[in-house]
């Protein structure tokens, strides 16, 4: 299993390159974080001209964060989004992995049509289906409930597509062998397919989480009670035509981006070679 290590020079070069790329990603965020940690004041004072203070505030205060949690109930929005995201993930991973398996390993009538359906579901913008979808949700009598936020997002074409791509990599011979041993399809799916597809499952978890976490327009339509307020609504509300509260906007944007980052940080350990797929490929 051991691989030859790269030369230190190559490693150093990679490190420098990665640092350069990461500056591109992190500098605007650092500025936002610094702005959120400063007592609220003018926006551009520390942005231009550029100084060390641009990214590292001299006086640090958590007042902006205290304000959004204490007075604007940002915690409630975080919990709502968390609940919606977790519930959607539970349904989504199950039904989408099943469908991905169906598409990857079976030939059946209507398969191409189904795959076509899967594809077009993520090729149509949400804005163009929002009205019929809302009418439907009202007719199902689930508007203004958590179900209205969870169920329409549970079937995720992108997730099915991803599972299909990954399951196709599992050699058919293994499944055939299991069939000969008398295993049922459900058992094969549970005991062979899923354990071999941890990276795919992890990816779909993050994908569905991000989708629900970042949704803004649908929650506004599907639910109207303030107890259902989700995180993006709470963040976006700080900007309007009359005024923008940069301190509130930035601090809530930072607090609101922590859950996905934490999720990714902990799940990415599954993106390590050798955990799955070892030697399966023919």
């Amino acid at each position: 299993m051991m691989r030859r290590y790269k030369k230190p020079l190559v490693l150093a070069a990679e490190f420098v390159l990665l640092t350069a790329i990461s500056l591109f990603f992190i500098l605007p965020i650092l500025w936002i974080v610094a702005s959120a940690l400063r007592p609220s004041g003018p926006l551009y004072t520390y942005a231009n001209p550029l100084t060390l203070q641009t990214f590292f505030p001299t006086t640090v205060t958590f007042d902006n964060f205290v304000h959004i949690f204490k007075n604007l109930h940002f915690g409630r929005a975080l919990l709502n989004s968390l609940l919606v995201a977790v519930a959607t993930i539970a349904i989504s991973v199950l039904i989408c992995s099943m469908a991905g398996f169906g598409l990857a390993k079976f030939a059946f009538r209507g398969k191409n049509l189904f795959f076509f359906i899967v594809l077009i579901t993520f090729m149509v913008p949400f804005e163009s289906i929002v009205i019929p979808l809302f009418v439907l949700v009202k007719r199902l009598n689930i508007d203004n409930t958590y179900f209205a936020l969870i169920l329409p997002a549970a079937g995720n074409g992108l997730a099915i597509f991803l599972f299909r791509q990954f399951f196709s990599e599992v050699p058919t011979e293994i499944l055939e062998a299991a069939r000969i041993d008398g295993a049922s399809w459900i058992r094969i799916f549970r005991k062979i397919i899923l354990p071999l597809s941890i990276p795919a499952i992890v990816t779909v978890i993050v994908m569905v989480f991000m989708f629900q976490w970042n949704s803004l327009f649908w929650p506004l339509i599907a639910t109207h009670s303030s107890r259902f307020e989700v995180v993006q609504v709470a963040i976006t509300a700080h900007r309007s035509t009359e005024d923008t509260s940069w301190a509130n906007l930035f601090s809530s944007a930072i607090a609101g981006s922590l859950p996905p980052v934490i999720l990714f940080f902990f799940l990415q350990k599954y993106f390590v070679r050798g955990i799955s797929g070892t030697g399966l490929k023919g």
């Binding site: 349904i91 199950l94 039904i95 989408c96 099943m98 469908a99 398996f101 169906g102 598409l103 079976f106 030939a107 059946f108 209507g110 398969k111 189904f114 359906i117 899967v118 579901t121 149509v124 289906i129 979808l133 439907l136 169920l151 329409p152 997002a153 549970a154 079937g155 074409g157 099915i160 399809w185 799916f189």
Partner: peptide, 18 residues
Amino acid sequence: AGWFFILPAFVFLGLFKI
């Protein structure tokens, strides 16, 4: 078997997307 595995997703996609 094919339809068994795609059916739940088919229902959800059909109703809320298609």
